[in-house]
Simulated assay, not measured.
Amino acid sequence: MALKQSIRVEVRERTDASEVRRQAMQTARALGFGEEREGRVALLATELAGNLFKHAGGGEVLLRIVEEEASPGIELLGLDRGPGMKDVGGCLRDGFSTAGTPGTGLGAMRRLSDQFDLHTHPGKGTAVLLRVFRKRPPRAGSFQAGAVCLPVAEEPVGGDAWAVAVSGSRGRLIVVDGLGHGPLAAEAADAVLRAFWRGPFLDLEELFAFLHEASRHGRGAACSVGEMDLGAERIRFAGVGNVAGMVVHLDGEKRWMPRAGTLGAEKVRPGVQEVPWTPGTMLLLHSDGLTSRWSLDQYPGLTRRHPALQAGVLYRDWARGTDDVTVAALKADQEEDGP
């Protein structure tokens, strides 16, 4: 899967929907969407931003490019801290409205999207995920992945990066935090990702030695890698620096802290850690742009939703706002409860 940093558009006024639509259509054209698919993207962007303003008084839309089965697509993630929904099923029916409007919002968005999911919590807000692909929707694979990856506000690019590699029943999630901010930090993170793609399924100790060598001519970086192996029924984690990890399963949460150090500065053995994998288990990595005071126990039902929603909700509520931030999640692609 090719994964990109997100574009953030804040929605404070009704007219902000036009900027969300502009960004979405510009991306669709760059990806070679046809007229009908581009029209879908425009309508979805407008409806999503309009709903944020009408029902929550505002919020933000995160847009990024996704790629599954070599078919590029656009992801729109709407986040708000509004009142939430008491009747999700009712809100998804066409014609249902709590704002005195025609009520075509969520129902139309679900119909027009290739992938749709949402999470809502009364009193805390709502997160809505929409994806449209250039061609037909991709088939279900072994894994689902999602992320929020954003630069600190004053920088044009961020020093964080992430990716997912999949080989059969194995999935590896990597999050990199280049030292500092801005273009030089982005170059440091890109150097690590380029090295990762040259051997994404190397033994974890060997992989980190390789990533260290690739980082020696730049600023250096922090990095963590998590692996979900469905065949061996295990999850493994290794890291150097400040990118934290967590496994969420039926019995609770386990936090993983990486070894102290910096790739490119000093060679550090990452210290591979392992726990059993069971159905429903989720792997999550995040840079230090996210605080560590949260627990998914605070969000009933969120672990059953798409990983992009998990990343979005944690970003919405726990981003520091003073640093680049990345939250990335991975889980086995199993049947989900309907939103």
Rank of each mutant, 00 (worst) to 15 (best):
G199I: 06
V148N: 12
V166G: 11
A189D: 01
E205H: 13
A163E: 13
A163V: 03
V157G: 03
A145T: 15
F116I: 11
V192D: 00
L202E: 12
E206G: 01
S142V: 06
K135E: 14
L202H: 03
D203F: 04
V192L: 03
H119Y: 14
A209P: 01
A153W: 11
L129H: 11
A145R: 12
R170C: 09
G141I: 00
R136Y: 01
F208V: 07
A209T: 10
A165S: 13
D190C: 06
A189V: 02
P151R: 09
Q115C: 09
S142D: 10
L173E: 03
V166H: 02
H121L: 15
Q115R: 14
V128R: 04
D203V: 06
A147T: 08
A195N: 08
A186T: 05
A191I: 05
A191G: 05
R136G: 10
S169E: 14
P138F: 02
G146Q: 01
D114M: 06
R134V: 01
G125N: 04
F201G: 07
P183R: 13
F196T: 07
P122W: 07
V166D: 03
H121M: 14
F201I: 08
D177V: 05
A209S: 15
E155Q: 13
G123I: 03
P137N: 07
A191L: 08
A195E: 13
T126D: 06
P151H: 00
S169L: 12
R139V: 00
L129R: 13
R198T: 15
L184E: 15
E154H: 14
P151A: 14
L150N: 11
L193G: 05
A195D: 06
G168C: 04
R172N: 08
A147L: 13
W197F: 15
D117P: 12
A140Y: 06
F116C: 09
D160S: 10
W197Y: 14
R134H: 01
R136D: 12
G199W: 03
Q144V: 12
T126Q: 10
D160H: 10
L173P: 09
K124C: 09
P138W: 00
G146T: 05
S113H: 11
D177L: 12
L207E: 08
G199P: 12
W197H: 15
A195M: 11
G180Y: 02
R194W: 00
I174F: 00
F133P: 02
L193S: 04
A153L: 14
V132G: 11
V148Y: 05
L204P: 05
R139S: 13
L150H: 09
S142G: 15
L193K: 02
L202W: 10
D114K: 05
G123V: 05
E155P: 00
V148W: 03
R198Q: 15
V148T: 14
S167Y: 02
G182L: 07
A161M: 00
D190P: 00
F201R: 07
D114Q: 06
R139G: 14
E205S: 14
A188H: 09
A186N: 15
P122S: 04
L173T: 07
F116H: 04
E205M: 04
A195W: 09
F116V: 07
D190N: 10
A165R: 08
V176W: 01
F208K: 06
Q144C: 15
P200D: 01
T126H: 07
L129C: 05
P151E: 02
A165I: 08
L112P: 12
L112C: 10
R136H: 07
